[in-house]
Design a binder for these strands. Structure first.
Length: 584
RNA sequence: GGUGAGGUAGCUCAGCUGGUUAGAGCGCAGGACUCAUAAUCCUGAGGUCGAGAGUUCAAGUCUCUCUCUCACUACCA
């Protein structure tokens, strides 16, 4: 049973990288679950701040900008807008969607580095890196290609051969060339970088991860422990790049020897969670209502009583459980560490990988043209890749929309509201006696609602969706038992009971649908004439289920909403498969 | 190669610290109902729980070996 008290919850989603609109796997693995969770917690009356941002630094951003013929900064402006729009189309309820290129993040990143250095957690070291003379830039390992020394495959990348799967070092490649320009004029040069001494933090990190063994998913702790067990290595947190956050000294001047170098994108990206929160708080409308970023991030200023929940794909776990915590702990300052970390596996495309180049998979901007956001939100959450990778197929998508949304929920709303309009003048009727049917649905809800709340609180999305569906199905079963259309012939009052309870179930389903399918939820609640201020469910109070079944004022005028979910037809599947590749 | 996560009904997945006839949804078959988007409700058929060995009074659940899939492997993010 949930405690009836408001909590302050900070939610962050892994930052979507700037170089393109994200595919459905990215959406399903971080932004969407973070949104559903945020909405659910708000619904239950908690104070939620959901922060996200575009991750804008790094080599791929520079290269993508060059390919688009734009300056990096213009390119990032453009793509940030595109991603913000895509998010809005999917009804992602960010309290703030910021940018890692913001002034606040720049300042924080530089401050963190100075604090880490002062505490002995940074060290300047020399390493060898591939330099492309023709491109005039250093190349990350995977941007160097050549012939694989193991299998003689000619398009092997510097980090791994895609043909034989062997892990490589760029110096192993035979006949290496730049993947950017194709130039063979590449050489190995010495370059200086700052290293984050993660190794010195190992014991502290291990102890901290241990404290979360019980409350973090296996996926999360096992990845963190794996890295710790293998021996945490120090990590370079600067790169030879122009685009990014400059490395400065205590006076704010470029650090000696660090011209042409910037912080590694993975050093500043998580710091952008804080930066974006500061940017959120700096907005006039937030300041006007007394919003402050400190209570979310500074443990000396209230963040001790904030619950911080992160959402991410499994590739991000090491950075969030080890690198960023090293930054936080190593700063010696009272920053908030993550409390709960939910990691997801991948959504795969017919069992294979999503691929932009091969046009495999669906991207957010395309998806929204195909089907309303509610459809995607429901399907992706009901099939969230929680315990292992989850394959997306059009057939499964069709099945969950048609069966769950259209038949079970949509049809339920439609059947009882239109019957009320037809037989009871569109008004919530009074009258009738409690029968076994009403007792049955009351018991059913008394059992299922607390379970649903608990699944949301523990972020078990598949289970939360399954429970939600079961509640909808119980509504249909209730109508079968109560059969108002049968009673109507002999006892209109008794029919009224069935209709009234049915309508109250519609209202309840509308409220419960808000975190998952917000558009349909709004249509339902509008049709039930429920005022905006009355659409929350404080702390998931289930102490009086009977009251929930008679909450609508008798005589309240309601209407039958338009069809909530149109079904997906076989022709749609064919057309989409044609367009997006589909089964191969 | 190393490490991790998975392999449970045709499909997608639940099964916590081992304990009566292994569960749900979809799909399929039969029935009921007619308020509804041919929707809904009920009933039923379907599994030697990847393979093999072991521990135990008892194993899907613990141990070992093998096998398949996926991911990560630190300069992509």
């Amino acid at each position: 049973m949930s405690t009836p008290k408001s909590e302050r919850i900070l939610v962050t989603s892994a930052l979507p990288y700037i170089n393109g609109v994200k595919h459905m796997g990215n959406l399903a693995g971080s932004m969407l679950p973070a949104d559903v969770y945020s909405r659910a917690m708000r619904l239950m009356g908690h104070e939620v701040l959901y922060i996200c941002a575009t991750d804008e630094h790094g080599t791929p951003a520079e290269l993508a900008a060059a390919e688009a013929g734009l300056s990096v900064s213009d390119y990032c402006d453009k793509m940030h807008t595109a991603q913000a729009e895509a998010g809005a189309n999917f009804k992602l309820s960010y309290d703030y969607f910021g940018r890692s290129s913001s002034e606040a993040t720049r300042r924080l990143t530089q401050d963190f580095a100075l604090a880490l250095e002062a505490n002995g957690f940074l060290e300047e070291r020399t390493s060898k890196q591939v330099y492309s003379v023709a491109d005039g830039r250093y190349l990350p390992d995977r941007y160097v290609e050549g012939t694989c020394p193991n299998c003689a495959f000619e398009g092997a990348r510097g980090d791994q051969c895609d043909n034989c799967g062997k892990l490589l070092d760029p110096v192993d490649l035979i006949n290496p060339y730049s993947a950017v320009s194709g130039s063979h004029e590449v050489e190995i040069r010495d370059t200086n970088h700052l290293y984050l001494k993660q190794s010195d933090m190992s014991n502290k990190l291990r102890a901290w991860v241990e404290t979360h063994r019980a409350d973090w998913p296996t996926l999360t702790t096992s990845i963190a422990m794996k890295w710790l067990d293998e021996g945490l290595r120090d990590r370079a947190i600067t790169r030879d790049l122009d685009w990014g956050i400059p490395v400065v000294d205590a006076d704010g001047n470029v650090r000696e020897g660090f011209d042409g170098k910037v912080f590694y994108v993975w050093f500043d990206a998580p710091i952008a969670y804080i930066g974006a929160t500061q940017d959120w708080a700096a907005q006039d409308h937030v300041k006007a209502t007394g919003g402050a970023w400190e209570k979310f991030w500074r443990t000396d200023k209230g963040a001790d009583s904030t619950r911080y929940v992160q959402f991410m794909g499994k590739d991000n776990v090491a950075f969030h459980t080890l690198s960023f915590p090293t930054t936080i702990m190593g700063s010696g300052q009272p920053w908030k560490l993550v409390d709960e970390l939910k990691a997801f596996n991948w959504v795969t495309w017919y069992g294979g990988k999503f691929s932009t180049s091969q046009k495999r998979g669906v991207f957010m901007d395309q998806a929204i043209d195909i089907a309303p956001s509610d459809y995607w939100r429901w399907h992706l959450m009901a099939n969230a890749p929680e315990s292992s990778d989850a394959a997306f197929t059009w057939e499964d998508f069709q099945a969950s929309i048609n069966s769950d949304l259209a038949n079970v929920l949509g049809n339920f709303v439609n059947r009882i509201t239109s019957y009320c309009v037809k037989k009871f003048d569109g008004k919530v009727p009074a009258g009738g006696a409690i029968t076994d049917a009403e007792k049955w649905i009351e018991n059913e809800l008394a059992e299922r609602l607390p379970r649903l709340i608990s699944f949301y609180e523990t972020r078990e999305f598949r289970k939360a969706m399954a429970e939600t569906r079961a509640i909808w199905a119980a509504g249909n079963e209730y109508l079968t038992q109560a059969a108002p259309w049968t009673h109507y012939k002999t006892d209109v009052d008794q029919a009224a009971m069935g209709v009234r309870v049915g309508l109250n179930l519609v209202a309840l389903f509308g409220i419960l649908a808000q975190p998952i399918t917000p558009d349909a939820a709004e249509k339902i609640l509008d049709a039930m004439n429920i005022p905006e201020g009355n659409r929350s469910w404080k702390f998931g109070d289930v102490s009086n289920v009977a009251a929930l079944l008679d909450a609508l004022p008798h005589g309240l005028e309601i209407s039958a909403p338009p069809v909530l979910f149109t079904k997906i037809e076989a022709e749609d599947i064919e057309a989409w498969t044609e367009k997006f590749g589909g089964a191969v």
